[in-house]
Amino acid sequence: MKASEIVWHNEESVRFMQSLSKLSEEEWRRPLGPGKWTIAEVAGHFAPWDRFILERRLPYLIVGDPMPEGPGADELNAGSARNSRERSRDETIDEFVSVRRQLITALRDLPDGDWSRDFQIGKSRMTLGHYFAGMIEHDEHHFRQIRQALESE
């Protein structure tokens, strides 16, 4: 995946998340389905992952050091969901926008050569383009869930 496509997706994700600011409190707290997270909880779990990429992935890639272990996904997601239940819609959206814009800036600042250089996370070798393609799939999965939850009522 090209750097320009990755940056474009992230810019669109900011616009999508900002569009959720028009939701009522009831819509914002609506579960995606029986036993599923609410829209608020889904929205709230993006910023901690973006922060992880900014702090624990990109700096290591730039200097070529081995990547540190990632956080426990279940633990990080549970904590972010809990925080989202305690925060307002606007606080959650503002945090997403702020951190995602930092990520966009960092991505734009990467030298072209960094996008094609291989790196390793655990036993997986990949390029930055491949890594972010996976992150985009993750975003799009959750954005579809949110759209479907809003259309179902």
Rank of each mutant, 00 (worst) to 15 (best):
A43L: 11
Q145C: 03
P111C: 06
V99S: 07
E151Y: 03
R117W: 04
E86L: 15
L150Q: 09
F46S: 00
D112S: 14
S24D: 09
E75S: 08
I93F: 05
I62S: 08
H130G: 12
E91L: 11
W49E: 02
W8Y: 12
S84Q: 05
L23K: 11
L107I: 03
W28C: 00
G134E: 13
A40M: 08
R147G: 03
F46M: 03
Q145N: 11
G79W: 06
D112Y: 05
I93S: 00
A106S: 13
R147P: 01
D74R: 11
K36D: 12
I6Q: 00
E86W: 03
W49A: 01
R144H: 12
G129T: 06
G113S: 13
W28V: 01
E151F: 07
F46C: 01
E55N: 10
D114P: 00
V97Y: 05
Y60S: 04
V14K: 01
N10A: 05
H142S: 05
V42P: 02
E69Y: 02
G33F: 09
E75T: 12
F96N: 00
H130W: 08
R85K: 14
A78C: 07
S88F: 09
G64A: 11
E95M: 08
A106N: 07
P34I: 12
N10K: 06
D112F: 03
R30W: 04
L150W: 08
A3R: 15
S19H: 09
V99N: 04
P48W: 08
R82E: 15
S80Q: 06
D74S: 12
L54H: 05
D65G: 03
M17W: 05
E12S: 10
F96Q: 01
L76C: 02
H9G: 00
E55S: 08
D109L: 12
L20S: 02
D94H: 09
L61V: 10
G79Y: 03
I93T: 02
G64H: 10
T92Q: 02
D50I: 04
L58K: 03
I62K: 14
R101I: 02
W28E: 00
S80E: 08
W28F: 11
Y60R: 09
F46Q: 01
G79R: 13
W37G: 00
G134S: 11
A133F: 08
F132T: 01
D109N: 13
F119W: 15
E140P: 01
M1H: 08
A73V: 14
E55K: 12
E140C: 07
A81V: 06
Y131T: 03
V7W: 06
